[in-house]
Amino acid sequence: MPQEVRGVIARSQDAPVEVTTIVVPDPGPGEAVVAIKACGVCHTDLHYQQGGIGQDYPYLLGHEAAGVVESVGPDVTDLAPGDFVILNWRAVCGECRACKRGRPQYCFATHNATQKMTLTDGTELSAALGIGAFADKTLVAAGQCTTVDPAAPADVAGLLGCGVMAGIGAALNTGGVTRNDSVAVIGCGGVGDAAIAGAALVGAHTIVAIDTDQRKLDWAKEFGATHTVLAGGGRSDEDVIAEVQALTDGFGVDVAIDAVGRPETWKQAFFLRDLAGTVVLVGVPTPSMQLEIPLQEIFSRGGALKSSWYGDCLPTRDFPVLIDLFLQGRLPLEKFVTERIGIDDINEAFEKMHGGDVLRSVVVLDPQ
Rank of each mutant, 00 (worst) to 15 (best):
residue 39 C to E: 04
residue 202 V to S: 05
residue 270 F to Y: 15
residue 69 V to M: 07
residue 246 A to C: 07
residue 276 A to D: 15
residue 138 T to M: 01
residue 261 G to A: 10
residue 34 V to Y: 00
residue 193 D to V: 10
residue 3 Q to D: 11
residue 266 W to R: 13
residue 313 C to P: 01
residue 176 G to S: 08
residue 123 T to A: 01
residue 335 K to F: 01
residue 360 R to D: 00
residue 248 T to K: 04
residue 184 A to R: 12
residue 178 T to C: 04
residue 36 I to E: 01
residue 319 F to T: 10
residue 248 T to R: 03
residue 17 V to I: 08
residue 249 D to V: 06
residue 351 E to K: 14
residue 220 A to S: 15
residue 337 V to C: 11
residue 107 C to I: 05
residue 14 D to Y: 03
residue 202 V to Q: 03
residue 184 A to K: 13
residue 58 P to M: 06
residue 88 N to F: 04
residue 61 L to F: 05
residue 356 G to C: 12
residue 2 P to D: 15
residue 293 I to C: 10
residue 356 G to D: 12
residue 162 C to F: 03
residue 267 K to G: 03
residue 305 L to S: 04
residue 137 K to V: 02
residue 238 E to Y: 06
residue 300 S to E: 10
residue 33 V to C: 08
residue 318 D to W: 00
residue 44 T to K: 14
residue 249 D to N: 13
residue 176 G to Y: 02
residue 140 V to K: 04
residue 191 V to S: 07
residue 356 G to H: 04
residue 232 G to S: 13
residue 258 D to C: 09
residue 162 C to G: 05
residue 2 P to S: 15
residue 103 R to Y: 11
residue 24 V to Y: 01
residue 275 L to E: 14
residue 31 E to S: 12
residue 338 T to V: 03
residue 224 G to M: 03
residue 13 Q to K: 13
residue 160 L to W: 00
residue 133 A to N: 02
residue 128 A to W: 00
residue 141 A to C: 06
residue 232 G to W: 07
residue 107 C to Y: 02
residue 281 L to F: 08
residue 110 T to R: 12
residue 358 V to R: 07
residue 214 Q to M: 12
residue 240 V to I: 15
residue 118 T to R: 09
residue 215 R to D: 14
